[in-house]
Design a protein around this nucleic acid. Sequence first.
DNA 1: CGGAAAGTTCAGTCAATAGTGAACGTTCAA
DNA 2: TTGAACGTTCACTATTGACTGAACTTTCCG
Lengths: 155, 155
Amino acid sequence: MFSPVGDANPLIDDFGLHIGRAMGWPPMAGRTAAVLMLSETPMTMPELQEALDASKGSMSETTRLLVVNGTVRRFKEPGSRQYVYEWRDDAWIGCLQHQLDQTTELLTLAESAQARSAGLPERQRARLREMHEYYVFLVRRLEALLADYKEFRAR
Amino acid sequence: MFSPVGDANPLIDDFGLHIGRAMGWPPMAGRTAAVLMLSETPMTMPELQEALDASKGSMSETTRLLVVNGTVRRFKEPGSRQYVYEWRDDAWIGCLQHQLDQTTELLTLAESAQARSAGLPERQRARLREMHEYYVFLVRRLEALLADYKEFRAR
DNA sequence: CGGAAAGTTCAGTCAATAGTGAACGTTCAA
DNA sequence: TTGAACGTTCACTATTGACTGAACTTTCCG
């Protein structure tokens, strides 16, 4: 199957690019996620650089992104002074949370648009009302979905 | 509030760029969606071009995209030979369907990755299993969500 | 038919985004 | 302290993707 180290692994690329795109990440972040998901041990930044044939700067930005997104954790192994990066067991919760956050932003947008729709003809107001309703619906359901998934994972 | 015609309306832009980004559309598609959502009447392509200060080519591509995504319909008014474009009443169903389709693609990816994981150590296999489980869960729930939303809209 | 307007396609341009690498901080073992 | 490796930042370069505009195809009215 995929070997995490060694360059231009088409499977890492394919896998990584797809995931990255779905999450709205740059390609390098997708590939890094794929490598970490498939790595047996936590990896250092130099190792990631090597495995992905990337620059320091790019890896720095990429690891930061993955950590912020909650899919990867960074820690120091006791006694070592360099950080290692590891795919989180609860990575998918982070992804779902991220989707929920994004949707909530659109809900806010829809709310503010609807709030200003007073002067518009009924047809247009109805459209904004529908958009608002849609996002209310969606956010509620995503919240439930996240809660259920957490519970599902907890057992 | 927003006036659909006239250039560089910051509200159309803001609104449109947000929606576009959320949907993974190019900026022009977002702005076009915003204009159509707020337009009183269906609009022709020349009108859209004018309203958005865009080229023919760009509008052609954009309208195609919106129609394919199920947010806009294109039809000819009886007796007229040019097409008009109109925001669909069921536009949000199209968006949700699109999200579901994308997620289903990732499910497929997860499936095929897991299917090839036989040789990997348990830890990695567990990660792929989890990814797969996650997408199974997500797709099921999104399907339910879509069905419920349709029902909610139908009444 | 003929031609005028609508609509599409596509090569080329321009803008946005991703990635590089060098300079700059930080940390820690000696 | 000091210096060696780690990690971050940022100005620059390369790549990707969006948009334009001209050439082309289609539609339909006279």
